[in-house]
Design a protein around this nucleic acid. Sequence first.
DNA 1: AATTCTTTTGACACTCAGTACCACTTGAGG
DNA 2: CCTCAAGTGGTACTGAGTGTCAAAAGAATT
Lengths: 208, 208
Amino acid sequence: MGLRERKKERTRAELQRHALRLFRDHGYAATTVDDIAAAAEVSRSTFFRYFPTKEDVVLFDDVDPVMEGVAAELPAGTPLLEAVRLIVRGGFGSLDDEARALEEVRMELARSVPEIAAILRERNSFGVEQIAGMVSRGIGRPTDDPEVLLFAGVVVGARYAALARIHAGAASSYIDELDAMLSRLVAGIPLADEPIRAPRPDPARSRA
Amino acid sequence: MGLRERKKERTRAELQRHALRLFRDHGYAATTVDDIAAAAEVSRSTFFRYFPTKEDVVLFDDVDPVMEGVAAELPAGTPLLEAVRLIVRGGFGSLDDEARALEEVRMELARSVPEIAAILRERNSFGVEQIAGMVSRGIGRPTDDPEVLLFAGVVVGARYAALARIHAGAASSYIDELDAMLSRLVAGIPLADEPIRAPRPDPARSRA
DNA sequence: AATTCTTTTGACACTCAGTACCACTTGAGG
DNA sequence: CCTCAAGTGGTACTGAGTGTCAAAAGAATT
């Protein structure tokens, strides 16, 4: 690998490192792209050459490709939901220390900085379409099959649940929490048949 | 209701009407706030007094409070998942013509303009926390209960699945599609036990 | 009807994200 | 070396969004 490539890699890592640090210390909105560029000792132009938007510096992530690798090595016949669990666990499990640390910082940010939580919720790793694509390949059905999409939606929902749990301060490890959520799903949708109780006389009706 | 109030209401409606029209005709990004303000014959400042951001002019929505009303009138003992279905259906069903038309335009926009699709996916109506709150009230468990959050996540996931289906052009009515997704969920998570097939030798490995 | 009070409004100036362009530097390879 | 392409920094621009302020207009009171 040439000097050029190494330099590029180093610059991107520096930009991301400083960006995450600044976001953590001063907040997302209060940190300008200029600040990040200055901290990494490059120009504003260079920042945008590496990351198309300010958001992307948070989103850049290394687990996706790993998960695809894990998926490719699962034995045929594994039940789909179980497969998803294994892929997720495997994907996060096989990160090297640095990548894992980055992932930790990112989740810490998601917990403490609301803007970043929103960004991650929306764009990080897996959206419905992405998972639907994997499922589609895994069981040989079209990506726009309603059941495929619904399954994908449920998985994404489990992820949101895990993030919400962390956001509420009721859990700390994103990976473990997501795994727990997926495990629960194996037993079906929780509370689906739970009877609702009589509505209270409306404690404080307000528009959120 | 005073004259003042009526004028205010009319201005907001005008702004939203023109904004949606311009978005539909020229795209979201290509339409500036100045364009919208000019079309509605008010100043830029005025636009921002009515809608804090450009996004909000799309998001402004009237179904939420209606759904809360429907929720309050369900008989005690209704199974939770069924209750959610009824609330959703009831909420959309009881819109007056104008509100329903607006909802249609909004969904049409979501289908044709990707930026708006993203915005709606992220911020419209119900997030996990919101649904978890409703569930929490409905069955009397804390909002950060993992099962409550997971259930809420699953419902949100069903919604994403419906949106994805529309986005793919495989469905046209958002309301019907969401209702269909929720109905499917009553029978459990589809495909959960579907065995995956042997992985293909990887057709085109690429980073999305 | 005139006056006072409150809210709306338009105008201006500002910051910051994001884009486009161009001139300059530097690594790669003959 | 010397050339070429890639990467970099600077400059100038558009548009979103914020803050301020003085003028205008509705509402309320006398």
